[in-house]
Structures are given as C-alpha cells and as structure tokens.
C-alpha cells in the first residue's frame, strides 16, 4: 500500500512542481499516470521510486514513512521497486543477461543462484536468443524488453514504467504492455506514465488514473466500468 498525503515537491527555492498530492495505491492495483508534457509525471514517478523525497507532506510506502527514513535505509526499499525508464538506461558495456541480472548482482548474490531465473525471464520476454548481445545491437523494442526484464527480475512489489510504449510501434507497445499487466496480475502494484490515448482507451476498464494538471495538482480516478447493455 502506498499512501501519499498533502505532498509537495520543489527544487531548492524554486516554485513547487508538485502541489498537495494526496492519493492511495492499494497493493496489486493498476494505474495510469496521465497529464500533459511538463505536468510532472516523470517527477512523480521519480518520487515514487525514491529518487527524490518530498519537500513536504507524508509519503508512506511498504509500511514506512519515507520522510523519517535515514539515507542508508532507502536502498532496501528501492529494491522492492522496479522501474522501466523512459530512455531505458541500459548499461552499454554489459550484455543483455548482465543488464537484466544487475539488480540481483548488486545484492551480492552469486550468479549460479540466479542465472536460471534470468534465462527464464529473458525467454519469457522473448529475448532468450539474445542474452549475450550488447544493448547497442538491439532494436528500440528489444531494449525496452530488456529494461522491463531488469525491472521485474527481483520480483518488485511496485512496478513503475515511464512511457513504456513511447518509442515502439503499436504492436510492440501492446506486447510490452501485456508483459507489465501480466506482472500486475501476479501481484505487483503497477503505475504506467503515458500520454498515449490509445493505450488509455484500451485499458481504462481495469486501471485507475492519476491525472496531473499543469499546476502540479493531482486527481485520482477509479477504473472506468463498462456500461451495461
């Protein structure tokens, strides 16, 4: 469960980018994060993956008040969060396998312990035959698949994706979205930032919406129920 109450975010002495945010994300829920470009979607995602702490208000994640945590306590929480970055952020000198296994390697786990899981995951996302390749040799869609595999390899409780369909064609976009929704069905809370109206229209019946307006304020909407008859 993620609870955000009266949260504001500003950089240094500048104006608030996010203002009075209050929302709740129940465990296993699925939400789209929408708003116009520059409304603060990426900033809100950044706050949710603990890349930035709120300037004010209260944010509770995994039963902890984020504002009260010491910096050394944050990495353990970040490991419960999987992030698919808009620009993938793959490491160019690591192979597909190594990029995906990175969240497990930084925990100090042995490769023998996780190699099978990583291989299975790569098969699942459709990159089983490319695990030794380097990101530069992959297409945009394949890079996005690697980024998704890396985000989910450690079985996160919260999965955040920033425009995951933005740089791929519609067919690949639908396939990637299918992967994320499958993980949501397995129990992960899912938040997808998008301004793709087609994606929204296809999935709003089972996903809530967090809408950021231009003033950095947020409105939360439940899934849209299909009208009877």
């Amino acid at each position: 469960m993620i609870r955000v109450k009266n949260v504001g975010l500003q950089y240094a002495d500048g104006p608030e980018i996010l203002t009075d945010l209050s929302f709740t994300l129940p465990d296993g829920s699925f939400h789209f994060l929408t708003g116009r470009s520059g409304a603060g979607k990426s900033t809100l995602l950044r706050m949710l993956y603990l890349g930035q702490r709120p300037s004010r208000g209260q944010m509770e994640m995994f039963g902890k008040d984020i504002g009260q945590l010491e910096p050394y306590e944050l990495p353990e929480l970040r490991r419960k969060i999987g992030v698919v970055f808009q620009n993938f952020r793959l490491i160019s000198h690591l192979s597909v396998f190594e990029n995906v296994a990175l969240p497990l390697a930084i925990e100090g786990r042995n490769e023998e312990d996780y190699a099978r899981n990583v291989v299975e995951l790569l098969d699942w996302v459709g990159l089983g035959d490319k695990m030794d390749q380097f990101p530069a040799l992959l297409s945009g869609g394949e890079q996005q698949q690697v980024a998704i595999a890396r985000a989910v390899v450690a079985s996160p409780q919260l999965l955040l994706a920033d425009e995951p369909t933005g740089s791929v064609d519609a067919e690949m976009g639908e396939r990637l979205l299918g992967l994320l929704i499958e993980l949501n069905r397995q129990g992960a809370t899912l938040v997808i930032a998008t301004h793709d109206t087609g994606v929204l229209a296809s999935h709003r019946h089972h996903a809530g919406e967090l809408h950021l307006d231009e003033g950095g304020r947020l409105r939360q909407f439940p899934p849209v129920r299909a009208k009877a008859g």
Partner: peptide, 16 residues
C-alpha cells in the same frame, strides 16, 4: 554519472 545514478536507483548501497 549516469551509471552511478542507475546503480543508486535500483537499490545499490552507497558503500557498494
């Protein structure tokens, strides 16, 4: 800088 930021965001401890 990007690599440091990525490792930080995916939960690497600072000492690591």
């Amino acid at each position: 800088g990007d690599l440091v930021a990525l490792l930080h965001m995916i939960g690497a401890h600072n000492r690591f």
